[in-house]
Deep mutational scan, measured.
Amino acid sequence: DDLEQFAKQFKQRRIKLGFTQADVGLALGTLYGNVFSQTTICRFEALQLSFKNMCKLKPLLNKWLEEAD
């Protein structure tokens, strides 16, 4: 599944880049005006958010990865 794959890759890249889940949540706030909690990022990576929320977060996290690289 696409979302599952993305969540896995996101977590690996985030760790490799040296960011915590909280860092990502704050960075999203800075970039897009939407601060996300560490818990939200954690749940995303664990696929524990609703499908709708996963779909909403994915493009933001994808963009963040591009910026962070």
Score class of each variant (00 low, 15 high):
residue 37 S to R: 06
residue 49 L to A: 07
residue 27 A to M: 07
residue 53 N to P: 05
residue 16 K to V: 02
residue 16 K to E: 08
residue 23 D to R: 10
residue 35 V to M: 09
residue 68 A to C: 06
residue 66 E to Q: 14
residue 53 N to V: 09
residue 57 L to K: 04
residue 17 L to R: 03
residue 36 F to K: 08
residue 54 M to W: 02
residue 53 N to D: 14
residue 45 E to Q: 14
residue 22 A to Q: 14
residue 19 F to Y: 08
residue 37 S to T: 08
residue 53 N to A: 13
residue 3 L to G: 03
residue 51 F to N: 13
residue 30 T to R: 12
residue 49 L to Y: 05
residue 7 A to H: 04
residue 63 K to C: 11
residue 14 R to Q: 01
residue 11 K to M: 08
residue 69 D to L: 07
residue 36 F to C: 15
residue 54 M to V: 03
residue 30 T to I: 07
residue 63 K to N: 09
residue 36 F to Q: 10
residue 47 L to Q: 06
residue 32 Y to D: 08
residue 39 T to R: 12
residue 13 R to P: 01
residue 13 R to A: 08
residue 63 K to I: 04
residue 64 W to V: 09
residue 46 A to R: 09
residue 33 G to Q: 09
residue 16 K to G: 11
residue 26 L to W: 09
residue 37 S to Y: 03
residue 55 C to P: 01
residue 31 L to N: 02
residue 35 V to I: 05
residue 13 R to Y: 04
residue 67 E to S: 15
residue 49 L to C: 01
residue 61 L to Y: 01
residue 33 G to T: 08
residue 51 F to S: 13
residue 9 Q to G: 10
residue 10 F to N: 03
residue 10 F to W: 04
residue 8 K to F: 07
residue 59 P to V: 08
residue 66 E to H: 14
residue 23 D to P: 00
residue 10 F to S: 01
residue 31 L to G: 05
residue 12 Q to I: 05
residue 18 G to Q: 02
residue 62 N to R: 12
residue 23 D to S: 03
residue 31 L to C: 10
residue 68 A to M: 15
residue 68 A to W: 04
residue 31 L to Q: 11
residue 34 N to S: 15
residue 13 R to D: 03
residue 5 Q to H: 09
residue 24 V to R: 02
residue 10 F to I: 01
residue 24 V to A: 04
residue 9 Q to M: 15
residue 22 A to E: 11
residue 54 M to C: 04
residue 59 P to H: 07
residue 51 F to L: 14
residue 7 A to G: 07
residue 31 L to E: 12
residue 10 F to G: 09
residue 29 G to D: 03
residue 34 N to I: 10
residue 29 G to T: 13
residue 45 E to F: 05
residue 32 Y to A: 07
residue 49 L to G: 07
residue 21 Q to V: 13
residue 36 F to S: 08
residue 46 A to I: 03
residue 29 G to C: 05
residue 48 Q to A: 05
residue 49 L to E: 05
residue 57 L to T: 04
residue 69 D to N: 10
residue 2 D to I: 09
residue 33 G to S: 01
residue 12 Q to H: 08
residue 27 A to C: 15
residue 35 V to Y: 12
residue 44 F to Q: 00
residue 28 L to Q: 03
residue 26 L to R: 15
residue 38 Q to K: 10
residue 63 K to Y: 06
residue 63 K to P: 02
residue 58 K to L: 01
residue 8 K to Q: 12
residue 43 R to T: 00
residue 12 Q to E: 13
residue 48 Q to I: 02
residue 20 T to E: 03
residue 9 Q to K: 13
residue 53 N to F: 06
residue 26 L to F: 15
residue 43 R to H: 05
residue 64 W to E: 02
residue 19 F to D: 08
residue 56 K to W: 06
residue 15 I to M: 07
residue 42 C to K: 15
residue 43 R to V: 04
residue 12 Q to F: 04
residue 37 S to V: 04
residue 8 K to L: 14
residue 28 L to T: 02
residue 2 D to K: 14
residue 38 Q to E: 15
residue 21 Q to M: 06
residue 65 L to A: 07
residue 45 E to R: 01
residue 44 F to M: 03
residue 43 R to I: 03
residue 36 F to E: 11
residue 38 Q to L: 06
residue 48 Q to E: 12
residue 63 K to G: 12
residue 39 T to F: 06
residue 16 K to Y: 12
residue 23 D to N: 04
residue 21 Q to G: 04
residue 20 T to K: 03
residue 53 N to G: 11
residue 62 N to F: 05
residue 30 T to V: 13
residue 7 A to D: 04
residue 22 A to V: 06
residue 27 A to Y: 06
residue 7 A to N: 01
residue 42 C to N: 15
residue 43 R to G: 02
residue 47 L to G: 13
residue 11 K to R: 12
residue 9 Q to A: 09
residue 23 D to F: 00
residue 67 E to V: 08
residue 38 Q to H: 06
residue 51 F to T: 14
residue 50 S to E: 10
residue 69 D to S: 05
residue 64 W to F: 05
residue 30 T to W: 07
residue 43 R to L: 01
residue 34 N to G: 14
residue 55 C to N: 12
residue 32 Y to W: 09
residue 44 F to I: 03
residue 66 E to F: 11
residue 57 L to G: 02
residue 19 F to W: 07
residue 7 A to W: 01
residue 17 L to D: 04
residue 3 L to T: 00
residue 22 A to H: 15
residue 33 G to P: 10
residue 10 F to Y: 04
residue 16 K to A: 13
residue 30 T to F: 06
residue 12 Q to W: 11
residue 67 E to K: 13
residue 33 G to A: 08
residue 12 Q to R: 11
residue 36 F to R: 15
residue 3 L to A: 00
residue 63 K to E: 06
residue 51 F to A: 12
residue 10 F to K: 08
residue 46 A to P: 01
residue 32 Y to L: 14
residue 3 L to P: 03
residue 51 F to Q: 15
residue 30 T to M: 12
residue 35 V to R: 13
residue 39 T to A: 13
residue 66 E to W: 02
residue 9 Q to L: 10
residue 64 W to R: 05
residue 50 S to N: 01
residue 62 N to V: 15
residue 57 L to M: 09
residue 43 R to Q: 11
residue 26 L to A: 13
residue 50 S to H: 05
residue 27 A to H: 13
residue 47 L to H: 14
residue 54 M to G: 02
residue 39 T to E: 15
residue 49 L to R: 08
residue 66 E to T: 11
residue 53 N to H: 12
residue 51 F to D: 11
residue 24 V to W: 00
residue 46 A to V: 04
residue 11 K to P: 01
residue 35 V to Q: 14
residue 37 S to K: 06
residue 12 Q to P: 04
residue 47 L to D: 04
residue 39 T to G: 10
residue 29 G to F: 08
residue 67 E to W: 07
residue 24 V to S: 00
residue 64 W to T: 00
residue 30 T to K: 15
residue 56 K to C: 08
residue 68 A to R: 09
residue 55 C to W: 10
residue 40 T to C: 05
residue 25 G to S: 12
residue 28 L to G: 00
residue 40 T to F: 07
residue 66 E to P: 06
residue 43 R to P: 00
residue 66 E to M: 13
residue 22 A to P: 01
residue 13 R to S: 05
residue 59 P to E: 08
residue 10 F to Q: 04
residue 48 Q to T: 10
residue 51 F to E: 15
residue 64 W to H: 02
residue 68 A to L: 03
residue 67 E to L: 15
residue 50 S to A: 03
residue 50 S to C: 02
residue 42 C to A: 14
residue 18 G to W: 00
residue 31 L to K: 11
residue 48 Q to S: 10
residue 49 L to I: 00
residue 24 V to M: 02
